[in-house]
């Protein structure tokens, strides 16, 4: 829709404006509150905030458990991203460029973990590992996250492929490049934006994931699990500080992602 619509439906616009602003407030006020509390001088998080301090951020640096869990989360995400890309990008290509019987079903199977709550996906993998006698570890978490976020890569890359002129690939074949060379020289460069975008999304999703991690992790904690454990003792300003940092990280990643997906 463009400015014509705006011109045409001013009445609709006014009423939607009020509601829109209210919803944005609903979405952002809690996050703003979280940020505000992370600077609160008082340990009890009551309204209004009376004093300000950076000490919660400083104390994070001394929290060895927390730092270790951040490292774990980063490691898991760093393993999940390449795995989902290596499996997902060619799969998306196959699904959108090869008209084979059952491609719809295959696509549905890939999408299943996106629709089925994480707890069920986690459980099913847990049961499989137990049946095979494999112990739980961060590797099991990597496995679970890959299952869960593979459809994100497949979906985003397939959407980009649908918008791509397939004659461009034929032109490459026509000019003497084989199938593999065409994929590397023409398809991949044109998927750059979608690949970077989905990689960043998978990274943050994996970094923040709770349900699957809860079931599949062994003795190691990831950051969300650490926060989960800390929450048992109630919400503290430290938690708010950690949460603020993750929001900042997400903001940076999404800004990079939006820029990458432009072309």
């Amino acid at each position: 829709m463009n400015d014509e619509l705006a011109r045409w439906s001013r009445g609709l616009r006014r009423s939607s404006q009020l509601l829109g602003v209210a919803i944005f407030f609903f979405l952002y006020a809690p996050i703003a509150l979280l940020v505000a509390y992370s600077f609160s001088g008082s340990r009890s998080l009551t309204f209004p905030i009376r004093s300000f301090t950076f000490s919660w951020y400083v104390s994070l640096a001394d929290n060895a458990e927390l730092l270790h869990s951040i490292l774990n989360s980063l490691s898991v995400a760093a393993a999940v991203v390449p795995l989902t890309l290596i499996l997902g990008v060619p799969a998306a290509y196959a699904l959108s460029r090869f008209a084979f019987i059952g491609s719809g079903t295959v696509n549905h199977i890939f999408t299943l973990p996106l629709m089925i709550p994480g707890i069920i996906t986690g459980l099913s993998i847990l049961l499989l590992l137990k049946s095979l006698g494999i112990g739980l570890s961060l590797w099991a978490v990597v496995l679970g996250h890959t299952v869960a976020w593979l459809p994100v890569v497949v979906g985003q890359v397939a959407a980009r492929l649908r918008r791509m002129d397939r004659y461009v690939e034929e032109a490459s074949l026509d000019l003497g490049a084989g199938y593999a060379e065409t994929f590397l020289r023409v398809v991949l460069p044109n998927l750059k934006g979608a690949i970077i975008g989905s990689a960043l999304l998978v990274f943050t999703l994996s970094f923040d994931e709770v349900a699957i991690t809860f079931l599949l992790t062994g003795t190691e904690n990831t950051l969300p699990m650490q926060i989960w454990a800390m929450l048992r003792r109630g919400v503290t300003p430290e938690i708010c500080a950690v949460a603020t940092l993750t929001v900042v990280m997400s903001g940076i990643l999404i800004a990079v992602g939006v820029r990458a997906d432009k072309d």
């Binding site: 809690p30 999304l201 926060i227 929001v247 997400s250 999404i254």
Partner: peptide
């Protein structure tokens, strides 16, 4: 893009 866990626990604060 922000943590599901975080967006849920915020409501304890509120």
């Amino acid at each position: 893009w922000t943590s599901f866990l975080l967006r849920a626990f915020i409501w304890r604060l509120i």
